[in-house]
Simulated assay, not measured.
Amino acid sequence: MITVPRSPDLRHVVVGCGGLGAAAAYWLARAVGGRALVLERDTLGGDGQDPARVLRYAQHRDADAALAREAYATWRDVERVSGQTLVTETGGLIIEDAGPRRSLGERAAVADRHDVDFELLDARAVARRWPQFRLAGTEEALYQRRTGVVDAARADATHVALARGHGAEIREHSPVRALRPTAGHVEVVLDDEVIRAERVVVAAGAGTNEVLDGLVDPLPLTVRREQVTSFATPNLLDFSPARFPVFTWHGTDTVHGFPVDGEVVTKLGHEAATDARRRHEFLSAHVPGFLGPERHTRTRLATVPADQHHVVDTLPGEPRVSVGVGARDAFTFASLIGRILAELATTGASRRPIGSFALDRPALAAAA
């Protein structure tokens, strides 16, 4: 382990300013003020992705479930200090319409272990409570009332604004080409400058391996591509957040439905290969009132570890560099993971249970 004396002339650098990076920027700036420097290779908020993300209280893994309460509390803290509304709780359904329902049983078991309230519903109970659905009668569902929607674009912008308010410097169009640890600091290499950093947080998404080249074996990362199609439904009251939940439907295709929140449209998340005909067939059969004139389809990209689990850790042998990569339902934990990364950068450790998110975990090595 390398021990580095603290120096007031060294910066704390965050590489990447997406969901995790923007959150890390805020929580780090709260701790070190103007010594925080954030380097984003592109334009802030310029990816054009759809901002709606599912916020889940009932998780399918124990490691995530152990952090869910604090993840929600962290979002509320950010809302409190910013005066912004980032989270809308709508309740959430996970519906399965065929085959073995192992995911519902597994999620229910995890919820039980972590004292999360939920309901298991048959098709008649779902249709009775939410008549917007048209069901065949063989479906089963899990309902959790605290599920909702977080506006990712608004959350990122809020984290960035709060970071600047605490004195952080945020630079756009500043790709990091390499990190070079030395005895007294970490050199952050840009195209036309080398920055001396006391600690570095890497939250670079698809660019993670490029930034970490030479410091660690390449991480097995995959880019997931989903599209979100918006419909100008005329049935605004029926699909308002107070009357209609976020839903995930597992069947021939897996889709995610969002009520009218923010934009005056309903939204359907689906695999990029799903064509318009199949989207309309699914909605016509199962949620007909959801439909309206199709407004736009946006692509959502997410870089995730191959074992579908977060990475939140310091580099083995180089604790001055910490790394964050989100996984499934990652935006539920975005602000909390940023907070943990800031802890690793300022204290070298976190009191939160992040052992399952280690860089050297066997499952990640096997996936590599």
Rank of each mutant, 00 (worst) to 15 (best):
E169L: 10
E169P: 00
E169I: 00
E169T: 13
I170R: 01
I170P: 04
R171P: 01
R171Y: 05
E172T: 09
E172R: 01
E172N: 01
E172H: 00
E172F: 05
E172I: 01
H173T: 01
S174F: 02
S174I: 03
S174L: 06
P175A: 10
P175M: 04
V176A: 13
V176F: 05
R177N: 07
R177P: 00
A178Q: 04
A178Y: 10
L179W: 06
L179F: 09
L179N: 08
P181N: 11
P181H: 14
P181M: 11
T182R: 15
T182L: 05
A183G: 10
H185G: 03
H185Y: 14
H185R: 11
H185I: 01
V186E: 14
V186T: 15
E187W: 04
V188P: 10
V188W: 12
V188Y: 10
V188D: 12
V188M: 13
V188K: 04
V189A: 12
V189I: 15
V189C: 12
V189K: 08
L190H: 11
L190E: 08
L190V: 02
L190C: 09
D191E: 15
D191W: 08
D191S: 13
D191C: 02
D191H: 10
D191V: 03
D192C: 08
D192P: 06
D192K: 06
D192S: 13
E193L: 07
E193T: 03
V194K: 11
V194M: 13
I195C: 13
I195K: 13
R196L: 08
A197Y: 08
A197S: 07
E198Q: 15
R199I: 00
V200F: 10
V200Y: 12
V201G: 10
V201L: 06
V201E: 11
V201S: 10
V202P: 06
A204H: 05
A204I: 01
A204R: 03
G205F: 03
G205N: 05
G205E: 09
G205R: 04
A206F: 02
G207R: 13
G207Q: 14
G207C: 03
T208N: 02
E210T: 13
E210Q: 15
V211S: 07
L212G: 07
L212P: 02
L212W: 11
L212A: 07
D213E: 15
D213F: 02
D213Q: 12
G214M: 05
G214K: 03
G214E: 06
G214N: 03
